[in-house]
């Protein structure tokens, strides 16, 4: 299998790393070579967070290069827009429409871009937006937005859904498993093309 490249972008604290961990684990369970990259430390304090997963028969670089991402999973619109140039010409983006202000916005020095959704539409081939935060709140856990997005992204991933379920089981604490599964299922089928 040719290497499949995924970028997962969001804000520190949104659970970006768990989503990439589950995808990487699923790729391993499917018998593929896989590499995953993430950043810890200062970048996690409410800053922009990017995780990358690459899987296929043989993977060298753990980093997705500009112009090579097959799929961008965005946890927040501004952070989605920030990484659009990493997408292939025919790449797919699926993202959470719920915005989170930056510190510059919070202190009144900057304004959040009002045209962010148009920007994303203009700069990517296939765009699938939906309010993943709303879905997570409906499920009963605002922090489960990461599993909601994974559920929504599943149809774009060349991975067997049953291995993804096993990967979820392996990756989340037992007492939170049912909640995470529920959030994942609530995400499946979200965000059809507008």
């Amino acid at each position: 299998m040719k290497v499949f490249n995924i970028l997962i972008a969001g804000v520190g604290g949104q659970g970006v790393l768990l989503t990439s961990k589950i995808i990487a684990e699923a790729a391993l369970l499917q018998g593929l070579d896989v590499k995953q990259s993430e950043v810890h430390g200062m970048a996690q304090r409410g800053g922009s967070v990017l995780s990358q997963v690459r899987f296929g028969d043989k993977v060298f670089s753990p980093i997705v290069a500009e112009g090579e991402a097959d799929l961008l999973i965005g946890f927040e619109p501004l952070e989605t827009a920030r990484y659009l140039h990493f997408l292939r010409e025919d790449g797919t983006v699926i993202y959470n429409t719920r915005s989170i202000g930056t510190i510059g916005v919070s202190i009144g020095k900057e304004t959040y871009p009002q045209d962010i959704h148009e920007t994303i539409q203009k700069n990517a081939y296939a765009v699938h937006p939906f309010d993943a935060t709303h879905v997570a709140v409906e499920v009963g856990e605002k922090r489960a937005v990461n599993l909601v997005l994974l559920g929504a992204a599943i149809r774009f991933l060349p991975l067997d859904p049953s291995v993804v379920d096993n990967a979820i089981t392996n990756s989340v604490p037992k007492k939170l498993l049912e909640l995470n599964r529920k959030a994942f299922q609530a995400g499946v089928g979200q965000a059809s093309i507008r």
Binding site: V11, G12, M42, A43, Q44, R45, G46, G47, S48, A65, E66, G67, E68, L78, E79, A81, R82, L84, H85, F86, L87, T102, I103, G104, V105, E110, T111, Y112, P113, T119, N123
Partner: peptide
């Protein structure tokens, strides 16, 4: 590849 989307506000920690 495309150029990065210009003019986006930054998100520092």
């Amino acid at each position: 590849c495309k150029l990065p989307v210009g003019g986006l506000i930054v998100r520092p920690p």
